[in-house]
Simulated scan of single mutants.
Amino acid sequence: MPTPPPTGPLVTRDDIAAQLALLGVEAGETLLVHSSLSSLGWVNGGAVAVVRGILDALGPAGTLVVPTQTGAHSDPAVWVNPPVPEEWWDRIRATMPPYDPLITPSLGVGVVPETVRTWPGARRSAHPQTSFAAVGPRSREITDGHAPDCRLGERSPLARLERLGARVLLLGAGYDSCTAFHLAEYRIPAPRVRVGRPAPGGWETVTEVSISSDRFDELGHDFERDRPVVRGTVGAADVRLFPVADAVAYAERWLPLHRPREEDFHHPRA
């Protein structure tokens, strides 16, 4: 069978920069970007063109931040997609390479974050499961000091992004991927879970706040209904743009009402 022709639209680096500027992305600001490359159309240059286009819109004084999570650095006992045989668990724990911010690839967040992670001058935070990478003059300020027992809370890049007045850009991604909502989970009563992972000296277990993206799509729907959210398109992708602080504050009120904390016990995230 011949390969089918690509589906459009054709999207270039310049298109991305121009369309982001039309949406209101400002030179010099800080953006936390969640992205889906495939949603944009046929991008000439792929993820590299997307990153260049975003950086063009931000200018040299702006900072681009992305999640570079490594969820596989976790206890195999909690793996469900897919699970592994129980008889493998001990060997996996004993031999899993520890997280290295310079070389450990991101997982499950898309090709754009992985491109940012390896970008010249990029910095990456130290948490072995929920790191962020950043490019720009504020990258060190945002990524340094990510506490190993604080995945997405007050001692993570999310809290720094909130304080800096950063905005979230959902570039073809849905609200279910909006990590800013997780910061709210640290500010409301929430159960704690034991989280296992590899460490330089061997296996370690830490106590963490239980986090879950369950119902984040509903949360995002209500947030967009009640709060000012910039909506538009880049290429074929639906785009949302809003302040981190607004999303966190709204989620702090919404989650206790719509997602009882007992629900979190059934959905720990390693």
Rank of each mutant, 00 (worst) to 15 (best):
E208P: 01
P157L: 12
I211E: 12
P157A: 10
R197G: 10
R187Y: 01
L171W: 09
D214F: 09
R227D: 02
R192P: 03
S156D: 07
R194P: 01
T207I: 06
A184I: 13
T207D: 03
G196P: 05
R167P: 08
L152C: 10
P189H: 14
T179E: 02
R163V: 06
D222C: 03
Y175D: 07
D144K: 13
E162W: 11
Y186G: 03
R155L: 12
C178M: 13
P191N: 09
H146W: 15
E141D: 13
V234M: 05
R187F: 10
R160Y: 02
V193I: 15
G165E: 07
G145T: 06
H146R: 14
V209L: 07
S210W: 04
H221V: 08
D144R: 15
R192V: 07
G220N: 01
P200V: 07
F181W: 11
R167G: 09
G201L: 05
G153R: 07
V209H: 10
V234F: 11
A180R: 00
S212I: 04
E208H: 05
A147P: 08
P191F: 03
R163E: 12
R163H: 13
R192K: 10
D222Y: 13
A147Q: 11
S156G: 07
R197T: 03
P191T: 02
R194S: 04
R155Q: 12
I188S: 03
R163T: 13
A166E: 08
V230F: 06
P148F: 10
R140N: 06
D226N: 09
T143M: 05
L171N: 07
S139D: 14
Y175F: 14
E141G: 02
L170K: 05
V209Q: 01
V168A: 07
W203E: 00
I142S: 08
R197Q: 12
I142R: 08
F216K: 01
S156R: 12
I211R: 05
L183N: 00
A166L: 10
V195I: 15
D176M: 12
E204C: 06
S210T: 05
T179C: 09
L164D: 02
I211V: 15
S139T: 11
A166H: 05
S213L: 04
F216E: 00
